[in-house]
Design a protein around this nucleic acid. Sequence first.
DNA 1: ATGTAC
Length: 479
Amino acid sequence: MGATAAAAAAEYTEESPYRFRIARRDPMRVDGVVFASRELLRDAERSLQQVVNVATLPGIVGASYAMPDIHWGYGFPIGGVAATDVEAGGVVSPGGVGFDISCGVRLLAADLDRRGLAPELGAVMDGLGEVIPRGAGPGGVWQVRGPAELEKIMAGGSRYAVEQGHGDERDLRRCEDGGAVAGADPEQVSGRARERGLGQVGSLGSGNHFLEVQQVAEVYDDAVARAFGLAAGQVCVMIHCGSRGLGHQICSDHVRAMDRAMARYGITVPDRQLACAPVDFPEGRAYLGAMAAAANYGRANRQLLAEAARRIFRRETGARLSLVYDVSHNLAKTEEHPVDGERRRLCVHRKGATRAFPPGHPELPEELRDAGQPVLIPGTMGTSSHVLTGVPGGAAFHSTCHGAGRVMSRHQAARAIGGRELRARLESDGVAVRSASWRGLAEETPEAYKDVTEVVAASEGAGLCRRVARLIPLGVVKG
DNA sequence: ATGTAC
């Protein structure tokens, strides 16, 4: 399965530090451009074939890009960014978004520092351990009353959650798209996807998803950190999760529909996992409508988990949590960007890549206009997470990395360490752990991942973003 | 990532 690896490993040249180019050759329509250090690139060479494959998509403009955390994915590499020109027959591909549609990160800052939290950390972690649903399968902080309410969640995202009393208007200003993506079309969401989503609203899921209590360990840019609401020593809560079974089912359903449609439209791709359809054709519109519904479900999910964390912090410490930002790293969006000196309407796929708007961007709320968009990079359990900001002239349609990639399979990781042993190690390092399963915990051991700090350094070196702060965990809630 | 396969 996977890519047709007929060609040898793609040849690339180092164009400038942290920037490598794969020259176009048939059937590529554009070059490939990979942002990485030499070391990170060496680990990812196999995935360059996927960068090449993406470069063949109808309507692609600029280049087929990859971020420093590139690794093998379904069709597109994870860490891939590709934009297609909608008016020129550009396509949308579910593989360019991924199975976990709108997976992303939300960061909240407490009016409390680590010394203030220390005596209550155990109680806070116990509280979070009780109220944060996690692990595979059903369970969520919201009992959705029925199909009609699920439709409202799919249409309204975080905005709907706030309208129902779960958060305030300020939260929405600090969410990408104001908390809800326009154009959600619940009619394009199958019965099966709805069934899977009904019982999971407000849940973490499993794998690398988590809720962490963190502290700001290092600030690299005081002024920007202050604008984001962050200061050294401050306690934060980071939530990393997506659209659970609903997004997964939507991806499956629409990959199948597009696979069938491609033959009718005469579109050929080098890998069936790149199934796609023109944005303005029925299958393209249907996917984008369903994808937006899943995106909103994912944002409501994070809004509700944040509210649950707020209640626990309020009860155990009296502290309030204010939203720094909420941003997705698995999404396709319609955005305007210059192409050959002309502004064009593009479908920008970001899969394991984060939008990073620069200072002054009109879509940023007033209070972030001078600082740029907060970019939230979740680290591996027990290590650092990072806060970045967008920079002027950012390449790849203003995109940057999203996190650390795996270097060990789940199986390898579980063989390398037991869950109980790992928990003991983390606790002795000062990280409180509340996990759902020992096996799941072991699979997420830090040794199984690349160092996210290297990824962030390469992203900054490539001119994609700038570092603002580094966060370290005090406690982790895991699926 | 995912009721870790239809």
